[in-house]
Design a binder for these strands. Sequence first.
DNA 1: CCGTCACCTGTCCGATCGGACAGTTGACGG
DNA 2: CCGTCAACTGTCCGATCGGACAGGTGACGG
Lengths: 240, 240
Amino acid sequence: MIDSDVFDFVERCRNHATAGSLLSDLLNAAKKLGFEHLILSGVPLGGQKLAPMIELNGWPRGWFERYVEAEHAAVDGVCIYSAKTLKPFLWSEVPAKWSETEASRRVAGEATEFGIRSGFAVPMLSVHHWQSVLSFASSAKSCELPRRQQAQLVTMAIYAGMIVQALSDDDKDGDGPLTDREKEVLLWAAAGKTSSETSQILGLAERTVKWHAARAREAFGVATTTQAIVEAVRRRLIHP
Amino acid sequence: MIDSDVFDFVERCRNHATAGSLLSDLLNAAKKLGFEHLILSGVPLGGQKLAPMIELNGWPRGWFERYVEAEHAAVDGVCIYSAKTLKPFLWSEVPAKWSETEASRRVAGEATEFGIRSGFAVPMLSVHHWQSVLSFASSAKSCELPRRQQAQLVTMAIYAGMIVQALSDDDKDGDGPLTDREKEVLLWAAAGKTSSETSQILGLAERTVKWHAARAREAFGVATTTQAIVEAVRRRLIHP
DNA sequence: CCGTCACCTGTCCGATCGGACAGTTGACGG
DNA sequence: CCGTCAACTGTCCGATCGGACAGGTGACGG
């Protein structure tokens, strides 16, 4: 694959209106570099066992289901390492600490049944601020991917991540669920201020501050102000 | 500039150990496309006036200082629109709603004194989950940047953002400031659970839950559990 | 002209938090 | 063998939150 093919892909990205068309385009491009499968998903951070969110699923039929059902994400060295770094890496480069566990080897063993032997992972910050990883998988026993090809894959990966992101937040033009005052109150609360402190900062009555916080809670349908703050951060309405 | 130049840049990125060397490399590359200046900075989200964080500063001497001191970020159409979208755009494409304000036109006017007339902005999620923008600036009166060149700039921009990110979080290998239990407690607190609810979920005494939360607060040197949660999210120790 | 809505304010009170005190247990490394 | 540290548990109490009650103002559009 030559450099301009990558840019052809990048240019086509603009036109993809659905995750599906993006996925098939990306799969085609990856195939030219020897990677038949790929997946873009969130990674579980330290100790969390929540099922990660899948953004693009280009894994072999069956393998994906097996992986999810067996909760492989929690022990897969590739997945764990993806949560620790932001640099792209070959699966073979995962530190022994995570790849040489019994559980991780079992995952790798099962993968071969579906024609997956090696791969290249590109960690990134994706949708909703979650750390994600786009993993390219190959049936080749080992891959010594030249720098240039790595750079090409990374470029397509982070671009695809960006498109997925853009597809998932469309309604940015509207005013959003929170008023400016509500955002302000949440922001100061996130900074550790009490209601009375915030009231002095903003020149309001303490009661008013608590009232705005209550409105923010209602807007998100949550019980605590902390939850409202987390939600507002997730939706990029404020940044702490 | 040909496609392979971009990949040369991408490959060189691996070797940049400081933001300074990355910046000069990026400036050189941008110049080939007609953009003499650039800046990578956080953007203020709705109603916030906090000074955005500057990651890479390649703006003309003087203009940067003026911009910050006059708090132009709060009224600059390019800056405001960068907070609303994740798609790259030419400065001339900023919707009138934000670009046609008196204040925004004043900013654009002042910029010409420093040889900045047009530009291309690439919004992204950068360090610490903040929405950021890499703005390329040109002295050309108007730029009709072909798609291909836009794709090249975007590629370099998001790659540079990734590198800045990687440079800023180095100590990912260590255990981090929080234990697994502390993360768990924060996670449930972020989900709106009270201490007693969390104690039942985790099978602990309520006192213990509060104690873990206290440890987490200490670890970050903050006063409230909410602050600890926000900090943990910012540092990507948990994702809510 | 009147409804709607953001914005603002007040009181009352039980639930919850956060700080300060004082411990036990088990694992791990020097 | 002993120090250290994560993990765990307890009581007491003032500060704070969150829910429920009941309002007033100004702007904006139908």
